[in-house]
């Protein structure tokens, strides 16, 4: 009897700790949800009673503060980057695991090193490259590229001319060392007999990829889709620098403009924008959570 009661008390302690932690992690979101529904004169008080203004606030932020447009932009770049990374990494891992070729180790090392090169670290060089105007004709571009002193040792002369465009966000993020690494680990765990029989049946590596590898990699694909979608959705520094016009801005940076609209901050409308803009990653998160745990968090190598 005594043993049972001490166990219960010990568990009570655990429950109190966890409830406190859950309160701290979840309260800010509950707070944002309630504040998004309140009337203007109540928002600035400590009141936590829900109001009825949510749809009206939503209408204002969506149409007048351009939340709709920011969300569309974020959605567009997140889908392109996540999709692009998955496809590019699948092909890279296919080559690295199922082919023998000379520069294999070197190329793999080259890809893995980029794990240590976060894009944020090179924004100055990247800004020059992405935003500089392209050469007016192919000849001057080639003259520049084949002059090693100018090409390598001087600030960048010609770039892509993608300042203020969504391409300027999408392309720099398109390749993924994480993706190549995860697919490679997964492919290495596939029994050789499968690949052998595919080859003996005369399957080309593309057919092997489509009919065997991809169906077997759904957990890894799901995990990567979640990681990359959230990663790109959360991008802040680079869009803040490369995008100038509000019409092309992503939602993370757009929040600044929603806060700065008007003479004083309309907090209920800002909280409405917050609530709406966390929905897409949350939906992706709940859809792919299982795949994420199985394909990434629980896999022994990262």
């Amino acid at each position: 009897m005594k043993g049972k009661s001490t166990l219960w008390i010990r568990h009570l302690g655990v429950h109190i700790i966890l409830l406190t932690a859950v309160f701290v992690t979840c309260f800010p979101i509950i707070f944002a949800i309630i504040k998004a529904t309140q009337e203007t004169h109540i928002v600035a008080t400590a009141s936590m009673i829900p109001g009825t203004q949510f749809l009206k606030n939503l209408d204002t932020v969506w149409n007048e503060y351009h939340l709709g447009r920011y969300l569309r932009n974020s959605f567009f770049i997140s889908l392109w980057v996540a999709g692009g990374k998955i496809i590019l990494s699948l092909f890279a891992a296919l080559a690295l695991v199922f082919y023998t070729f000379r520069a294999k180790k070197l190329i793999f090392a080259f890809i893995i090193v980029t794990l240590m090169l976060p894009t944020e670290m090179l924004i100055l060089g990247l800004f020059e490259l992405v935003s500089s105007q392209p050469a007016s004709d192919l000849k001057s571009l080639l003259i520049w590229m084949f002059n090693p002193v100018e090409f390598f040792l001087e600030p960048t002369r010609y770039g892509f001319g993608w300042g203020d465009t969504l391409s300027g966000i999408i392309f720099p993020f398109m390749a993924s060392a994480t993706g190549v690494f995860l697919f490679r680990q997964h492919f290495l765990s596939i029994p050789r007999s499968l690949a052998d029989s595919a080859r003996i049946d005369g399957a080309h590596s593309l057919q092997f990829l489509r009919h065997i590898l991809i169906p077997m990699s759904m957990n890894t694909i799901g995990a990567l889709a979640l990681i990359q979608f959230v990663y790109v959705w959360d991008q802040y520094i680079w869009p803040r620098i490369i995008i100038r016009r509000a019409a092309n801005q992503v939602v993370q940076v757009g929040l600044n403009m929603i806060i700065a609209t008007g003479e004083s901050v309309q907090w209920s409308q800002v909280m409405t924008a917050v609530i709406i803009s966390i929905l897409p990653p949350l939906i992706v998160f709940s859809l792919l959570y299982r795949a994420f745990m199985n394909g990434y968090a629980l896999s022994s190598e990262k």
């Binding site: 590019l88 990494s89 092909f91 890279a92 296919l94 080559a95 690295l96 199922f98 082919y99 023998t100 070729f101 294999k104 190329i107 080259f110 890809i111 980029t114 090169l117 894009t119 670290m121 090179l122 924004i123 100055l124 060089g125 990247l126 020059e128 490259l129 390598f152 600030p155 960048t156 392309f171 720099p172 993020f173 398109m174 390749a175 993924s176 060392a177 190549v180 050789r192 690949a195 052998d196 595919a198 080859r199 590596s205 092997f208």
Partner: peptide, 30 residues
């Protein structure tokens, strides 16, 4: 299990091109 002189490089080239153009070159230029 597959052997080819060219195919693996074709599969790797999109990843490598993106990494060189948008990571290594800008890092060097920084």
């Amino acid at each position: 299990v597959f052997t080819s002189r060219i195919v693996p490089y074709i599969y790797l080239s999109p990843t490598l091109i993106i990494l060189i153009v948008f990571l290594f070159y800008p890092a060097w230029k920084s």
